[in-house]
Amino acid sequence: MEPLNALVSVTNFMLIPAFAYGSQLALGALGITLIFSILRFAHFAHGDTMALGTAAVIGGTFFLQAQGVSIGGLPTALLAIPFGILVMVLYLLAADRLVYKYFRKVKAKPLTFVMASLGVMFVTNGITRLFMGVSETRFEDGQRFIFTIREFREWSGLAEGMALRTAQATTIVTALIVMVVLFWFLNRTRAGKSMRAYSDNEDLALLSGINPERVVVITWTITAILLVLAGTLYGLDKGFRPFNYFQLLLPMFAAAILGGLGSPLGAIVGAYVVAFAEMGITFAWRRVLTYLMPEGMEPSTMMQLLPVDYKFAVTFAILVLVLLFRPTGIFKGKVI
């Protein structure tokens, strides 16, 4: 029995990747939950706007690289993020002006908004592919590892190794900072509180002199920031392909619903639950169990509950369970 090796192995192959993935999902799900609580619809264009934002960051990165700009060991993309955010703020506000604002004015049904977001998604998808094509683009540069498997082995003297990639570490650190800042904003600033008030009770917010259009603008701006960060971090970690971003839609929705639509804290918790469930259930536990089991009882199969191809099935199962047993989510979100 070698529990230490088991721990290192599970950390390396599952915990770190899941934590990074969960952080990316959390940033995305936060955007979904914000739009839901302020604009009150399920934003189907989320994945594709995330892709477009990342595309803008990639463009900026290539430009900076061509200029020979870099920041030590960190990915150059981090420098291009402000540019991506600017592009996406303008894009989302334009989309709001041209599309959603009218439906707000005529007080359209929520599903009309969802449908409109589908149209925006289509357009956004086309624009992204126009710039990036459909194949994978890698834009991670700088030092790839904070420490490698070999370095860890030499340092610890263990048989099992562990590595931490720069992209993963950046993701986790950035996500944590963003979450803290977001909660500070929502709970401490006037603008943040006015958003919460609007989400809580639209009519009373109006009576209190809160300007709904301003709240909407702030919401899209924050969403743009979250989108670009989530998309860039995901792209740094796993490479950029527009279709993968579309496919993030389901886990992001699942995370937001699991946490309780409209609850930011819920979105974060939900995202980590989804990420760890996806990774845990599609993870081959053989190696870890081999270290844990007594001699002679090592598992002979992969000890994988489901093949990786079915990670969406895991997400979907979570979604179904939530819908069946607790449709308001963990942190009682908006009533259904």
Binding site: F41, A42, P110, L111, L250, A254, I257, F312, V320, L323
Partner: peptide, 10 residues
């Protein structure tokens, strides 16, 4: 109403 949309997507 939008839960059906999300579930069918899944």
């Amino acid at each position: 109403s939008d839960y059906l949309a999300i579930a069918t997507l899944g």
